[in-house]
């Protein structure tokens, strides 16, 4: 598992990366009330704002962590945004993407580094 400074977690399986937000991020956001996901099949570039999350407090984005193609989105979150608070690091993943260039992955944090980052 890798982590970004934007509080995303990245689960790598071959060239497919599953992306969600960390429990720390979910707690900071507060109750999530709205999620907008990208289109399946969309080509995205690293740092594109591809997901909108609105909580009771504010709006925020999830950035594409890498270049690639969106292969699957978790539509259940659109119906029930509260899942993001219930299980942010499990069922409430946002999207899966097929990554064309894995090299930026080296710059992301491992779990120990992320824990240090948020403390």
């Amino acid at each position: 598992m890798k982590y970004t400074e934007e509080h995303e977690w990245l689960d790598v399986d071959g060239d497919i990366v599953t992306v969600g937000i960390t429990a720390h991020a979910a707690e900071q956001l507060g109750d999530v009330v709205f999620v907008e996901l990208p289109e399946e099949g969309a080509e995205v570039s690293k740092d594109d704002e591809i997901v909108v999350i609105e909580s009771v407090k504010a709006a925020s984005d999830i950035l594409a962590p890498l270049d690639g193609e969106i292969t699957e989105v978790n539509s259940a979150l659109v119906e029930d945004p509260g899942k993001v608070n219930e299980d942010p690091e499990g069922d409430a993943w946002f999207f899966k993407m097929k990554v064309s260039d894995m090299s930026p992955m080296d710059d992301y944090m491992d779990e120990a580094a992320y824990k240090d980052f948020i403390s």
Binding site: G30, D31, V33, V56, K57, G82, N85
Partner: peptide
């Protein structure tokens, strides 16, 4: 601004 229960609850 909020307690552990959270704004929604």
């Amino acid at each position: 601004v909020q307690y552990p229960m959270g704004v929604m609850k």
